[in-house]
Amino acid sequence: MQERENPERLLLPAVILIEDDPNLGSMMQEMLDVNYRVEWAQTRAQAETLIRRQEHGGYDALIVDRRLPDGDGLDLVRSLRRAGITVPALMLTALSSVDDIVEGLDSGANDYLTKPFHITELEARLRALLRGYRAQSASVIIGDWLLKTDAMLIEDPDGRQTPLTDTETHMLALLASSPDHVFARDELLGRVFSEGSDQGVVDVYVSMIRSKTTKAIIDTVRGRGYRIGRPEAE
Score class of each variant (00 low, 15 high):
residue 1 M to T: 11
residue 1 M to F: 08
residue 4 R to I: 13
residue 4 R to S: 10
residue 6 N to T: 12
residue 10 L to T: 12
residue 14 A to K: 15
residue 14 A to T: 05
residue 22 P to M: 06
residue 24 L to V: 13
residue 25 G to F: 05
residue 26 S to Y: 08
residue 27 M to P: 00
residue 29 Q to W: 01
residue 29 Q to G: 11
residue 31 M to E: 08
residue 33 D to R: 09
residue 34 V to M: 06
residue 40 W to Q: 04
residue 42 Q to F: 04
residue 43 T to F: 05
residue 46 Q to A: 13
residue 50 L to C: 06
residue 50 L to A: 12
residue 50 L to I: 04
residue 52 R to L: 09
residue 59 Y to F: 15
residue 60 D to P: 05
residue 60 D to M: 04
residue 65 D to V: 11
residue 66 R to W: 08
residue 66 R to H: 05
residue 73 G to M: 09
residue 74 L to T: 02
residue 75 D to V: 06
residue 83 A to N: 11
residue 87 V to E: 01
residue 92 L to A: 10
residue 95 L to I: 02
residue 98 V to I: 09
residue 101 I to T: 10
residue 101 I to C: 14
residue 105 L to V: 04
residue 105 L to Y: 05
residue 109 A to N: 06
residue 111 D to E: 08
residue 114 T to E: 00
residue 114 T to N: 06
residue 115 K to G: 00
residue 116 P to L: 03
residue 117 F to G: 09
residue 117 F to D: 01
residue 117 F to M: 04
residue 119 I to V: 14
residue 125 R to W: 07
residue 125 R to C: 05
residue 125 R to V: 08
residue 126 L to T: 07
residue 128 A to D: 02
residue 129 L to G: 12
residue 133 Y to E: 06
residue 141 I to E: 12
residue 142 I to Q: 01
residue 145 W to Y: 15
residue 146 L to K: 15
residue 148 K to V: 02
residue 149 T to N: 07
residue 151 A to F: 05
residue 152 M to V: 00
residue 153 L to A: 01
residue 153 L to M: 14
residue 156 D to E: 04
residue 156 D to C: 12
residue 165 T to P: 13
residue 166 D to A: 14
residue 169 T to P: 12
residue 170 H to K: 13
residue 171 M to R: 05
residue 171 M to G: 02
residue 171 M to F: 05
residue 174 L to R: 07
residue 175 L to W: 02
residue 175 L to S: 03
residue 180 D to N: 14
residue 186 D to L: 11
residue 187 E to K: 04
residue 190 G to M: 07
residue 190 G to H: 07
residue 190 G to W: 01
residue 191 R to W: 05
residue 195 E to K: 15
residue 197 S to R: 14
residue 197 S to M: 12
residue 201 V to T: 15
residue 204 V to K: 15
residue 217 I to P: 02
residue 220 T to C: 05
residue 221 V to C: 11
residue 227 R to A: 06
residue 227 R to H: 07
residue 229 G to E: 04
residue 230 R to T: 11
residue 234 E to G: 14
